[in-house]
């Protein structure tokens, strides 16, 4: 295992997994992200982007979640 590197969720490649560390943003967006289960320590996998590149589908807590890239960018992850 190599050293974990910190990046943001929108940089993940297809099939790549990461651990959520921090959810940024504020107000409704942040609240919504946390309510959907994106909190510190949760595993998340990038499934695939939409045909036009944005939004992106992820698998988290056993279900599929789609986020715009701007939203995924708010989430700090460890790869």
């Amino acid at each position: 295992m190599s050293e974990p590197t910190t990046t943001t969720l929108d940089t993940l490649q297809i099939g790549q997994s990461a651990t959520v560390r921090r959810v940024g943003g504020d107000g409704a967006v942040r609240r919504r992200l946390m309510d959907m289960g994106l909190v510190n320590g949760v595993q998340i996998e990038m499934i695939r982007p939409a045909p036009l590149g944005d939004p992106v589908a992820y698998k988290v807590r056993g279900y599929r979640l789609s986020l715009r890239k701007s939203e995924a960018h708010l989430i700090e992850v460890e790869v």
């Binding site: 107000g27 409704a28 919504r32 279900y63 599929r64 789609s66 986020l67 939203e71």
Partner: peptide, 11 residues
Amino acid sequence: KPPQPFVMELP
């Protein structure tokens, strides 16, 4: 208006 989350489940 504050941005509304897109955040959507793919059921």
